[in-house]
Write a protein that binds this DNA or RNA. Structure first.
Length: 109
DNA sequence: CACCTGACAAATT
DNA sequence: TAATTTGCCAGGT
């Protein structure tokens, strides 16, 4: 497998653990990985994971904004998927992060 | 081989 | 309070 790196692999794993209807932020993932400031690397991993079947649309920035729209494939792709999963949007491109925030390791429960 | 870029965030000035 | 800088990791040029 995948060479990439432990960091990437961990990011993919965490993201794949996100329950449907929930979202998480780069900062929380990075923090879970051990480096809270590695949010950049998290986004980097998602970008590399594009096409790997990873639900990267469930990962947003700390404002709940869909940061990776441009890299995802379309400006309305992520939003449409998130809405289909039960995510409430405050406005176009911005979801209610405080209502659907999920924390890695927090368990689905 | 060295520098720059890139889906961010938090701290400091 | 806002603006700027640093930290993080890997990939591309």
């Amino acid at each position: 497998m995948p060479a990439r790196s432990d960091f990437f692999d961990r990011v993919w794993k965490v993201v794949s653990e996100i329950p449907l209807g929930k979202v998480t932020t780069y900062g929380h993932i990075a923090e879970f990985l051990g480096s809270k400031s590695a949010a950049r690397t998290v986004g980097w991993a998602l970008r590399a994971a594009k096409g790997s079947g990873l639900p990267c649309h469930r990962v947003v920035n700390r404002y709940g904004g869909l940061s990776g729209q441009s890299s995802f494939g379309g400006p309305y792709v992520m939003e449409d998927i998130l809405r289909s999963e039960g995510i409430e949007f405050i406005e176009e491109g911005i979801l209610d992060i405080k209502k659907h925030l999920w924390i890695p390791g927090g368990e689905t429960k």
